[in-house]
Amino acid sequence: MSQLTRKEIEKLASLSRLNLTEEELVLMTEKLNAIFGYLDVIGSVNVDGVTPMSHVHGAINVLREDVAQPSMPNEELLKIAPDTSGRFIRTPLVIEG
């Protein structure tokens, strides 16, 4: 893998909504490249015909019946939410898009 540039890391940080300080950015650029240098060992492995493993133990069709259960009281949400208005959670204005 080519080296991750500071710019690419800034882009990843923005994709992940992570505000990084200048110091963190410098540190991340250095450490992430060290880590990716290590992760590249899988690059040369031949995996032709190998099925990717996304789940363990092969369980399938784990389903529930369509039965509605009583809700959590609204007050429980109001207790844990950082900002509320009436029964709602409040955030800065959401710009459509």
């Binding site: 529930r64 369509d66 039965v67 509605a68 259960q69 809700s71 959590m72 609204n74 949400l77 009436g86 029964r87 709602f88 959670i89």
Partner: peptide, 24 residues
């Protein structure tokens, strides 16, 4: 038009008071 949501048993009814049909 199901009684509960697709991934949990919270009610899928239309309407309801704001944040009435909630669960973890």
């Amino acid at each position: 038009s199901t009684a509960s949501k697709i991934f949990c048993s919270s009610s899928a009814a239309f309407g309801g008071a704001p944040n009435e049909f909630i669960d973890p």
